[in-house]
Write a protein that binds this DNA or RNA. Structure first.
Lengths: 198, 198
DNA sequence: TCTCAGGTAGACGGATCCGTCTATCTACTA
DNA sequence: TAGTAGATAGACGGATCCGTCTACCTGAGA
């Protein structure tokens, strides 16, 4: 197991494969836009312009691809937030909380917006012990913890509970937006958001 | 088209078929517990103990069954609420609002709880013009309108906006509960709920 | 009694699913 | 220059998908 040259499959630490990236990009797009079970590997392969064997070399099963899809989203979010915290300086707590809120408001105007990939994916995997469920849970916990940290830094009297409330508010806004295109003309989402923090 | 005796299929107004009920019950159970796409008609047929032809006589396509599944849930909810309004007398506004809240709190403790069937199903149907999406949207709007009516009756200063908030709160609670088994030891959900109303 | 709607049992079929396999080509690098 | 990892094209297969079709049975109402 220790990094042995398996019969097939990419070596550990080998240079990032462009084919793999193409597959992952295509899958991410399709999975988000259409759904996991609604998209077969055949379609991913076709639209990735990749050979069948190449696909299965990088992702031995479809499940592996789904996991990679969500894991990539997690990576991106964590990198983005790390960058933001580095840039914001002393103001990072408000910047962080604003970033989470903006993630909703900007996304829901976007063409092809279809809610939260973690929530949608979890809905398609009923087994709570499935890896994708673990990733989704971990990611939500991560967001909550980040917000809690920020609230602590702001001297908020109830950081843990408020972080929980903020996550719920965000969840509700995303789901509502994906279901009925909730537009929030009044900016009530933003007002509620910041009133919970202040 | 006008009620003509089609080659097959049940007559309009014919007595409710027990076979049909069995199919619908089985499908409801499986669709909710496992997911729509994850459950094939073959499985529904097998577990319904029904002949293949019987199945397709009542539900010409799988989509018809999915629609019937959600439509039935809507019927049940509307009937339940009508009963409750009839029973509650003058106190119906608080009874109604309590009923909506209790729907969440009781359900999420239940064995096999897997969130909201409308939200989960909508997540599996990416086409916004699909009938099931319309049903889900209509049902959510109905809940919101009912709550708004109750708030008006209570003389609430901002019934429309508050009804929207309550629906979002409910959505968030259900989704959170299905994703991470959010237990709400503190009763914060209930407190937030009633504080929005008072 | 006869009719006919509703139910039964199971074969059938084309499509799509996920995954394996062979055989060949290419490009880097030791 | 020889070896090797990675990519390619496409056949293949068993499973499952959704839906159709034939042939027969049953029971209640006209």
């Amino acid at each position: 197991m220790t990094g042995a040259t398996s019969k097939a499959g990419p070596r550990v630490g080998s240079k990032p494969s462009v084919a793999r990236e193409r597959i992952l990009a295509t899958a991410s797009r399709l999975f988000y836009a259409v759904g996991i079970r609604a998209v077969g590997v055949d379609r991913v392969i076709a639209e990735s312009q990749v050979a069948r064997m190449t696909f299965f070399r990088h992702f031995p099963t479809k499940d592996d691809l789904v996991v990679a899809f969500l894991a990539r989203r997690v990576e991106l979010a964590e990198a983005e937030l790390a960058q933001l915290r580095a840039d914001a300086g002393d103001d990072w707590p408000r910047a962080l909380l604003g970033w989470v809120a903006d993630g909703v408001t900007t996304a829901r105007g976007t063409e092809g917006f279809r809610g939260c990939e973690f929530i949608n994916t979890a809905a398609e995997f009923s087994d709570p012990s499935h890896p994708v469920r673990a990733i989704a849970a971990r990611h939500r916990a991560w967001i909550r913890d980040q917000m809690q940290e920020a609230l602590v830094a702001l001297g908020h009297p109830a950081p843990a509970l408020t972080a929980q409330h903020l996550l719920m508010l965000r969840t509700a806004a995303v789901v509502a937006a994906s279901l009925e295109g909730f537009d929030d003309d009044e900016g009530t989402f933003a007002r509620t958001w910041w009133s919970l923090i202040a």
